[in-house]
Design a protein around this nucleic acid. Structure first.
Lengths: 111, 111
DNA sequence: ACAATAGTTAAGCAATTGCTTCAGTGTTGA
DNA sequence: TCAACACTGAAGCAATTGCTTAACTATTGT
């Protein structure tokens, strides 16, 4: 198991590529095989497998092979971690703005 | 103004780099000048400016120059857009899981 | 006026990324 | 048994990325 920072790094890096985001998008509608994931993408199956391996390494996608088909599904916990990182920063900023607003309101009262 | 998909692309790409995430993290605690952003980073000021330009192009950060100092701040709207993309996919998946759970529960009742 | 400050820009370079093709492996249906 | 199927892995290659240094511009304090 990797520590949070490294895992976060892999996740955001994984999400940075449009093809990989399209794969995540497809998987959000239900599990799919590698070929099914590849079908809408204008690239070789091999390229898709390479993307998929990155997605799996990042923890965003989990896969299991049964016979000759690898079935992929989203790992919502990982998505939540990325979501959480962004959310924390945004909230920190917005709380700061609120405090600033309060301060300005108070200062105005004192005129 | 760019369309959503391209903007999202730039944002996730911007967030993929640890140095840039550190800059966003710093900015979530309040505005900062370029030099202040650079201070904790082990790289040249020039490199920081290049990262900053990417962050600004992605819409995650807004900057304004007064005199010779460029002051940077977070654009929460952009953060919310990235957050939203992830959230939608995760929710789609989780709703799907719920429906599946309901179906299985019903099927069990019918035995 | 001029030195220090704050940032910008361009050129260059090594490492990484996102593909490709090709040559496999293991699985399955006829 | 054996051809089609569903991947997998390695090698190679062009484009992009993340820096560096060096030369620059514009502002400010003394």
């Amino acid at each position: 198991m990797l520590h949070d920072a490294a895992q976060l790094d892999l996740m955001f890096q994984a999400l940075a590529d449009p093809a990989r985001r399209q794969m995540v998008d497809r998987l959000s509608r239900g599990p799919a095989s590698v070929s099914q994931l590849a079908e809408p993408l204008a690239m070789s199956l091999s390229a898709v497998v390479q993307h998929l391996n990155l997605l799996e390494a990042s923890g965003l996608v989990r896969t299991q092979k049964v016979g000759r088909v690898r079935t992929c599904q989203i790992e919502p916990k990982a998505l939540r971690a990325a979501e959480h990182w962004i959310n924390e920063r945004r909230l920190a900023w917005e709380r700061r703005l609120d405090r600033l607003g309060d301060f300005l309101a108070e200062t105005k009262d004192e005129t």
